[in-house]
Amino acid sequence: MPCDAAAVAAAIRAAAAVITTHRDELVRLDQAIGDADHGENLERGFGFVVSSLDGEVPDNPGAVLKLVATTLISKVGGAAGPLYGTAFLRAATALGDAPVLTPESVAAALRAAVGGVVARGKAEVGDKTMVDALTPAADAAEQTAAVAGELAEVLRAAADAAEAGAESTVPLIARKGRASYLGERSVGHLDPGARSSALLLRSFADSAAGA
C-alpha cells in the first residue's frame, strides 16, 4: 500500500496514542532532571494535532506534517514545542508536495528534521538531548535507504538507532536544556526528549510495517 496523506495522518494518530500511553513515563523522566512536564506537554500537543486532523486531512504527506508542525509550535510551549515543531516543519519542507513517501524521501525528511532541531537548539550529539536519538536515527535511515530497503525497513532501522541513542544519554552530563542546571547530578538519567523521539520513531516504524 502506498504511503499517502491518509496513511501519514493515521501514523500521526497512532503516535499520539503512544504518547498518551507513555505520558507518565515521560513526566517521571523529566521530573528527575527537569521540571516534570515533558509528557504533559507532548500529550497536550498531540491532542491538538489529532483535533486538527479531525478537521482536515491535507492532501499530501508534507502538508500533513506541516499541520503537525504548526499545531505543535502554537500549542505546546516549553522547549519541546518549538523543537519538535521545527523538526516536523523541516521534514514537511523536505517532502514538498510529493503524493507518497519513498524510502529516500523519508530518510531525507528525517535528516532535515534533525537539522531543524540543531539549528534551533544548538545541541550536539553527546549533550544529552533528543539530538542523541535523532542523529543516529537519520544516519541509519540514510544507510538503509541507500541499500534499497523498503520504507518500513528504513523506519525500523531509524527506530532501532533512536532507541540505542536514547539509552546512550543515561551516563551523560546534560549540557543543554533544563537538565544542564544539574551538572553532574544529571548523570544516570535517561533524557526525556531522547526517549520521546525514540517512541515517536518506533510508532512510525510500526505504522509503516502494518501498512
Binding site: 513526566v27 521530573q31 532532571i33 521540571d35 547530578r185
Partner: peptide, 28 residues
C-alpha cells in the same frame, strides 16, 4: 505540580536543596 500529583523531589527532614530554580527542578 497539579498535573503530576506528587512532589517534584523528596528531601529528608535534615536536608535542603541549594541553588534551586523556580520549577521544582533539583538544585545544584
Amino acid at each position: 505540580v497539579p498535573h503530576v500529583g506528587e512532589p517534584s523531589f523528596t528531601l529528608a527532614g535534615d536536608e535542603m536543596e541549594v541553588g534551586i530554580g523556580i520549577h521544582g527542578e533539583p538544585g545544584r
